[in-house]
Amino acid sequence: MAILVTGGLGYIGSHTVVELLNNNFDVVIVDDLSNSEKFILQNIEEVTGKKPVFYPFDLKRKELLSQVFDAHKIDGCINFAAYKAVGESQEKPIDYYENNLFTLINILQEFKEREISNFIFSSSCTVYGQADTMPIDENTPLKIPESVYGKTKQMGEEILIDFAKAYQRKITLLRYFNPIGAHPSAKLGELPIGIPNNLVPYVTQTAAGIREKLSIWGNDYPTVDGTAVRDYIYVVDLAKAHVAALKRLMENKSEETTVDIYNLGTGNGSSVLEVVKAFEKANNVEVPYQICDRREGDITIAYANADKAEKELNWKSETTLEDALRTTWEWQKYLKSREL
């Protein structure tokens, strides 16, 4: 079975491609390399012993996307193709709306015309906005997200729900919390272009001396230590959830419309300062930091109730925060070795 993985050389995409290949799926990657590097394709092959098909182009180019569908019998899609930085989305809203929504619509046009089902959408806990109660489960009311990035994810979900209903298709929306860590081989990990927007790569780059200090955005939140709280999930655990969701979709032989929604997280919240201290303990390094003003678009606290995924997908997060942070430091050292 051939699975189209858009954004498949990106952070979560590359780890999911590895898990798909390990589960004997054929993988076709489309990635414009705007937030990834070509060497990741070689590393995927080194890790798995298999080489996925790769097309380097922007999904907004509809004619090239159609050629991919002409060349391969696509049985399903996992869509990771999106800009993803919360802060940047506030500065470049039109870029985010164009990229994150137009690419999704182009893929769905191919699915509609070719009568393909089995679509998994890389969504986010940002669709909940600042939830009133914790933990957040799938029945938690959605709010208008604080960030443009979150709005594109919420709009993407709405587009997919309408698509499923109109054309009797099977869709899964995976709302995950904060992915961290790297592959145990240290050959795959988060690879931010320029200054990192996410916490953990900023922590690792600061520990490595690439950044002078870690900027912590706000210490006046109503949390245990004043810093924002998130649910940090190990990226390999997250990748395995995508495979579990895909298998469930494909085992469902019903022709009826289905839209399944799953939260993917650990069920535990950790503050920014707790993550910094856990990283220092796991890797025996120091991370200098400075407190800055709150960042526009950030929420105070979010952590998951992932019981539904455990019950229906037979999946749960298994990796501790410290173990995940240990892998991200090994990845940072691998990147350093590539420069020598």
Rank of each mutant, 00 (worst) to 15 (best):
G8E: 11
G13W: 10
E19A: 14
E19Y: 01
F25W: 13
V28A: 12
V30Y: 12
D31L: 08
N35D: 14
F39S: 09
E45T: 15
P52L: 09
Y55Q: 11
F57P: 07
E63G: 04
S66Y: 14
Q67N: 15
F69K: 01
A82C: 07
V86M: 04
L104H: 06
I105P: 00
I107E: 00
K112R: 15
N118Y: 09
S124C: 02
D132K: 14
I136A: 07
P141N: 04
P141K: 09
K143Y: 09
P145G: 07
S147H: 03
G150E: 01
K151C: 15
M155Y: 15
G156Q: 04
G156M: 03
I159C: 03
D162L: 14
D162P: 00
F163H: 07
Q168H: 15
K170E: 10
I180L: 07
G181D: 01
A182D: 03
P184L: 01
S185F: 10
L188M: 06
V203S: 10
T206A: 11
R211T: 08
L214M: 00
I216L: 11
G218I: 04
N219I: 05
P222K: 09
T223N: 09
R248H: 12
L249D: 02
E251N: 14
E255K: 15
V259A: 09
I261S: 06
G265V: 05
S271V: 05
E274V: 06
N284V: 12
Q290G: 11
D298T: 00
I301C: 12
K311Y: 04
W315H: 09
A324P: 06
R326E: 10
T328L: 02
L335V: 06
